[in-house]
């Protein structure tokens, strides 16, 4: 009994010693600032900064390859802290949130064929742009949902993606994941949005989707002097630098593509 105990303990001790020595001998020199930055960062490793993770980003900041405010996720406090560690200052930035510019679920948007294959938007989009008749419609297969490290994307029962603003950190991963380019980062305090990306003329757009922007310009006309909403190429868009906030504006829209409040209200509710 004694011999094996001693032998095993001995082996354990030796191995531990070896490891400790190896850690010393082969230690990689890191800038202490890198560790401090890594600690300050959210640690979600979402990749929103364009680097492999928070540690990688911290290294890049120390080397000067990344701006200290390059983390899109962390709050202003943290940004300032990170900048202070490398002896820089950062400008304040308005918080942003991702927005899906489509609300064409299966209940309102027409389909041009029956899709069979992978449940991935990027793969479906290779087949004639996807099954939605609207060329700029959400395919509802959830590439953005899978890309989101914060669980901030949900799929509505009618099969269109929706952002949960409270969870969104504006890291931008969903923006990159959407093959139809339907996701945009907008100022979090903006309340009026055009939730459509269809550039077709009115009749074609209407045929494709009941909640499409027809380019009718009703909204634009209410801002005749001050172009906060403009219609270009049959699609209204909002100048978020001077975002309008009048809830009455949304009532002008005949299809409900123009919505009020940060979270997109379900299209069905608005049109009824």
């Amino acid at each position: 009994m004694l011999v094996p105990t001693v032998v095993l303990s001995g082996i354990g001790l030796l191995s531990g010693l070896g490891l400790a020595l190896a850690a010393r001998a082969f230690a990689v020199e890191t800038d202490p600032r890198q560790d401090r930055i890594t600690e300050a960062l959210p640690g979600a490793n979402c990749g929103g900064c364009g680097f492999a993770g928070c540690g990688d980003f911290a290294g890049a900041v120390v080397r000067g390859d990344a701006q200290p405010d390059g983390c899109p996720v962390c709050d202003q406090e943290t940004r300032r802290l990170v900048a202070a560690i490398v002896g820089q200052t950062v400008q304040d930035r308005a918080p942003r949130v991702a927005l899906i510019l489509c609300q064409g679920g299966d209940d309102v948007a027409a389909k041009k064929y029956r899709y069979n294959g992978l449940a991935s938007c990027a793969s479906a989009a290779l087949l004639g742009g996807g099954d939605k008749t609207c060329g700029a419609g959400c395919l509802g297969l959830g590439d953005c949902q899978r890309a989101c490290a914060f669980g901030a994307v949900e799929m509505t029962p009618s099969g269109v993606a929706r952002i949960i603003p409270a969870r969104c950190t504006a890291c931008g991963q969903c923006v990159a994941a959407c093959p139809k380019d339907l996701i945009k980062l907008v100022p979090a305090e903006a309340t009026i949005h055009v939730l459509c990306s269809n550039h077709d003329r009115g009749p074609a757009a209407k045929k494709a989707c009941a909640v499409a922007c027809l380019g009718c310009k009703k909204c634009e006309k209410s801002f005749a002097e001050d172009p906060r909403i403009k219609v270009a190429d049959f699609l209204a868009y909002i100048d978020y630098e001077h975002a309008p906030d009048d809830p009455a504006l949304a009532a002008l829209c005949p299809t409900g593509s123009l919505v009020c409040s940060g979270a997109a209200a379900p299209a069905a509710e608005r049109t009824s």
């Binding site: 389909k111 041009k112 064929y113 029956r114 899709y115 069979n116 793969s123 087949l127 099954d131």
Partner: peptide
């Protein structure tokens, strides 16, 4: 009607 057709790879 086209929406009856299946499209797959």
């Amino acid at each position: 009607t086209p929406q009856d057709l299946i499209v797959s790879a």
